[in-house]
Each structure stands twice: as structure tokens, then as C-alpha cells.
Amino acid sequence: MGKLLILLAILSFMMSCNDQEKTDLSNLNLIEPIENVIAFNDKLLIGIETVEYPFCLLLQVEKSEKYSYEGIDLKGQKIIFQINTERLKTDSISRFGGAHIDLSPIKNEKELKNSLRNFDAENKIYGVRIEMKNPDLKSDILNKIESKYGKGIKNPNTDNGLYWNVKKENKLIFFAPDYDRLIVLNNSNLSKSCYWDTFNGLIDFGGCDNENYTQELVKNATKPKDVKDKPILKIDKNWNANSLIIGTSTEKDLVKSVINKNFDRMEEINGSTGYTDQIIYQNNYHDVYFYLSANKIKPENKKENIIKGYAINNFKKVEISFKNGLKAGMKFQDVIKLLDKKLIIDYENLKYANYIEIKNGLYKVTLNFDGKMLFSGMFVK
């Protein structure tokens, strides 16, 4: 009996220690150095994720057991830290393709520093996005927030969203249950009158000048009026560009195409295997990109690398036409009228979106819309 009691005491102590090791995200000032809030033995991914938020670098932690929020265990929930980088203050929601995910794994301090250097990013966080995948977790978190800060302000852009502007802590808190997210930001260097992301829409804290706010978010974008020698792009009814067939046309076909001007060829290398994951032909000046699968053994063999998608990210920087009746600059609702509703992904939730996703065989077409909800870019992959 005595041995049993000792064993139970030891187990209790170990469990207590594990609880104490958790990082309570509600206690962060959101100015912490990145290495203070992550553990390299967790699965870490860093990069661009325009579904979440297009104007910063994201560091995603998957299936970690080290986090809580107001004492609520977040085991199994995705945690995403936001990192400021001036380089991504551009038209990145379209530049990198709407609903585009380009995250790379990092396993140690060296790989983290290399990633931050590549994006010219800060070495500290300024926000955290917490996944809330089940109703009980959402309810528990909301109760904790309301007991601490009171009732939230209704987000006019979503059915159930709430937000708190906690000025004494320099924090913005966005409860977005429709998208399974709690978002907490240090707003010391953010706009005091406006906020926008794809899960919350545009929120006016008072005196918001949307046009100036948007211009600040994309201040490093190339101005379309200054663009010269615009490439001519013709999109057929199957969403192929300039007769380059997705899934069939090769890198050699792309090289021979009349569109192939001012493109740089880039290979993305998998750090774990050493193989080339994909090849990208990028024309940053005109914001046009082609993505190709790579021959693992001989990526230099242009006959074996197949086009798997493309992005045309700002229609004002190109001359573009569509065989299906679409036109650059069309209104969101007018675009919907031209499309087959059966092919639109998540059609019922379009009222929350600033992009439209379309099923097309083995790949997906994403149509992007600007702040005025005008058809402004597209991504096929």
C-alpha cells in the first residue's frame, strides 16, 4: 500500500510538471523572440499561407502538447505564430496565389535563421492564431475571454465572430468560430483604426480609411500604372493559359512559348531528401508564375518536367482575355453568375470570401478579388 501511494505521488508530480511546462499563450506579450515560444522537437513549418493572412510570415506548429490558453489545454490544435516582414507587405494575397500554402519544415536554429533571412523577417513574434476544432473548446475559450475582458463586439462580417480591442495590453483579440480560429495580436505597430484578414473581413475600429489602410498593407507592391511590356495571356475554357495544358505541357513547351519572356527559373529543393520538389518560372515584374513538377533524378531534363499550375496575380500588369466570358475587373457577383454553381467549392459560404475556388478535374482554380471585390487575379494548381 505504501509503495502504491509513493507511485501515485510520483505520477501526480510528473503530471504537475508536465502541466507547468505548457506555454500559456494568453500570457504572451507577443513581442517574444521566436525561440522562446517554440520547441524544435515539434513539427514546425514556416512560410507563406495566404488563407490565414497574406502580409506576414507564418510559423506553424502542428500537434504540439506544450501550449494552453487561459489554462485550457490546446493539445492537438494547430498553433500559428505571426512574424513581421516588410518583404511580404505587397499584393501577396494574389502574388503568391489566393488560398496558397508554401510552408517549409524547420528542425533547428540554423534552419530558422535561414528562413528568417530569406524573408528579411524579424526574429520575434507579434501574433498567434489558435486552431479551435471542436465546439467544447470554442465554448471554453470564449467563456475564459469574456470572464477576463467582458462581452466582445460583434464582427459584422461573420455570423458568430467577436472581437476585443484591449488597449491597456496593446492587444487585439478576434474570436472567429466560423473559421475555427482565435487570433491574438500585439497592435503596437498595427493600424489603430482598421484591421483585415480573410477570416474576419475588414473591421473599422473608428475612423478607418480603407483605401489608405490597404495601400499601407501593400506598400511594396509594383504600381500597375508603371508596368511596361505587359505579357498577353489567353485563358481557354479549361483554364489553360496560352495553350499550355496543365498536367500535359512540359517545361520545354513553356520555354518555347511566346509567353516565356522575363522569367527566372528557380528550383525548390527538399531539405530532407535533397531532391527538387518543384520548378518555378517567375516573372516578378508582371506577377506571373508557372509551377512545374520536377523529375527527381534529372530536374534539368525539360522534357520530363510537367506544368502543374500557374498564377496571374494582378490583371493590371498583363493583357488578359478569357474564352468563358470572364473579364478582368468584373464584380464578384457577376463572376458567380457566369460560373456553374456545382463546380464552385463551398458555394454556400461565398458571402464570407474574397476569392472563389472552382473544381476543374485534378486541379483547382482560385479567382481572387481586390478590396473593392473586383476580379483581380487567379491561381490554378
Rank of each mutant, 00 (worst) to 15 (best):
Q278C: 03
G247I: 13
G371N: 13
A353D: 14
I345W: 04
I245H: 08
L4P: 01
V288S: 01
K351L: 02
K237H: 07
K381G: 04
D136Q: 09
G207K: 05
I31K: 14
K113V: 00
N187L: 03
I101Y: 13
F174D: 01
Y275R: 08
Y285C: 02
S293Q: 10
N240M: 09
N324R: 04
Y352Q: 08
K331H: 07
K234F: 07
D334R: 06
V61G: 00
I297K: 09
V184I: 14
L7D: 08
I79M: 05
E211Q: 06
L326Y: 07
G325Q: 04
K192L: 11
A294E: 00
P33I: 00
T273D: 12
P224M: 11
D19M: 12
K228W: 05
M14Y: 11
F332E: 08
G361K: 15
E348Y: 10
I173H: 10
G247L: 15
V61L: 00
E65D: 11
I141M: 08
T222S: 11
I145Q: 10
T276I: 15
K124M: 00
N18P: 01
N210W: 12
N368Y: 05
K331V: 09
N143L: 07
R181A: 12
L8A: 14
N186T: 07
L162D: 04
I31H: 06
T85K: 11
M1D: 04
S188R: 14
N238Q: 13
I344K: 06
D334K: 11
K316T: 03
I6T: 09
L350R: 14
L58V: 12
Q77D: 07
C208M: 02
H286I: 15
N186D: 12
N240D: 13
I10T: 09
S92H: 06
G309D: 05
M378K: 01
L58R: 10
T273H: 04
I79L: 05
G361V: 15
I245F: 12
R129W: 02
V184H: 00
T276F: 01
G161E: 03
A9C: 12
I279P: 11
M1T: 07
K148T: 14
S376A: 12
A99M: 15
T198W: 10
I232E: 15
K22F: 13
T222W: 03
N29E: 13
S64A: 14
V227E: 00
D102A: 12
I358R: 02
I297P: 00
S243H: 11
K144Y: 03
D334I: 07
G309S: 09
N41S: 14
I232H: 03
I10A: 10
L142A: 08
S321D: 10
Y355T: 13
I232G: 01
G97W: 13
Y347P: 00
S12W: 05
